[in-house]
Design a protein around this nucleic acid. Structure first.
Lengths: 201, 201
DNA sequence: GTCTATAGTTGGATAGAC
DNA sequence: GTCTATCCAACTATAGAC
């Protein structure tokens, strides 16, 4: 483990930070705790990161990057309803599979809203999610041979908001069935917005 | 200020805690900061509250109680669409008027999800909001002379989730117009669920 | 590059004077 | 009831040995 190149070391420390924060919360992700989790001494962390905020910033960016990779798709669907339903289910599966990570994502956002040095993390994360949602919406419409009456950008905004709201409720009450019901209903609502008559290809 | 009865003292301290936390975040609401804000010495806080968690618990309950009082209604509406629209707008106005409080509410919820001693705060707050939403839904339907095809309890759950999601997005991007657009669209969607033909009274 | 040691803060909690 | 004084723990950050 010793004498790693800086980049590797940073990666190791960010992973350790993620592990601690996901398990025990953002406020538990102190420089000391991260060092202990990574099995290095306190000084090493301060050698790789200028201060705690830089570490947290790196952790926030890692969360964003990780969330993007996690969405898997099922088989290609036939109509808009099925396409949207599949996408929403896939996203929810990947979200609800890791409760700690989900909690951490919310905590990071709120921390960033209070701490000016972390502010970019919150906006970048939201922007990333919206872009991902927009891509999925466009794909879904294309797969179903229709398009959306409204700009996908706007729809994406709504989708992310609904998803976040449902996720927060689920974190509090733990009711997975109700969450899935809400999302299914929302997916139906979305599908209704797709113009069935319009063929893009 | 001196020699207040315990109840008054607690109220004063809870208000001080709310002021600090709303301004600077939950983690800034230390026992010391609260004492300073209230203009009392450190010992006074520990005399009124067994420990910091008890203070935070009281603060959480105060937030819940306060949120319930704040919703004001407009004039009695004619149909379900207008009734729901009015209610949603009124709620959003009261939420977006105080950004710090809104942020604080989210922070309290997340803190409660990490800290077992605060857990009841999160569930109570959510439960309270859902009950309020349910009451409003029933009122709205009654005012419009219809009822909901689905149990209002379920609808209330969805409403709170959507509202929270939109609020979180607004906290991050500050786009009030987009938030209102999302809510208006949701209100329309809700209104469509009301069965127009059914007369309750 | 990595470690130990330590400076300097801040916060929770309590004891004891008044 | 209220205050001051104090203890103890945990944290960020840095300095300097190796």
């Amino acid at each position: 483990m010793s004498r790693l190149p800086m980049a590797k070391r940073r990666e190791q420390l960010v992973n350790a930070a993620l592990a601690v924060a996901s398990r025990d919360g953002v406020e538990a992700a102190t420089v000391r705790a991260v060092a202990a989790e990574a099995g290095v001494s306190l000084g090493v962390v301060h050698y790789c990161f200028q201060d705690k905020n830089e570490l947290l910033r790196a952790m926030g960016e890692a969360i964003t990057a990780r969330n993007v990779e996690r969405v898997e798709f099922g088989s290609p669907p036939l109509d808009a309803r099925a396409a949207v339903g599949n996408a929403v289910t896939a996203i929810w599966d990947s979200m609800s599979a890791r409760r700690g990570d989900q909690l951490l994502a919310f905590e990071m956002t709120l921390s960033a809203l209070r701490n000016p040095e972390l502010a970019p993390v919150a906006t970048a994360q939201l922007e990333h999610e919206r872009r991902l949602a927009e891509d999925l919406l466009v794909e879904a419409a294309a797969a179903a041979g229709t398009d959306w009456g409204v700009p996908p950008r706007h729809l994406a905004r709504t989708c992310v908001a609904v998803l976040d709201g449902v996720a927060l409720a689920w974190l509090v009450d733990g009711d997975d069935r109700a969450a899935r019901a809400d999302l299914a209903q929302f997916a139906d609502h979305l599908a209704q917005l797709a113009r069935p008559g319009v063929q893009t290809a």
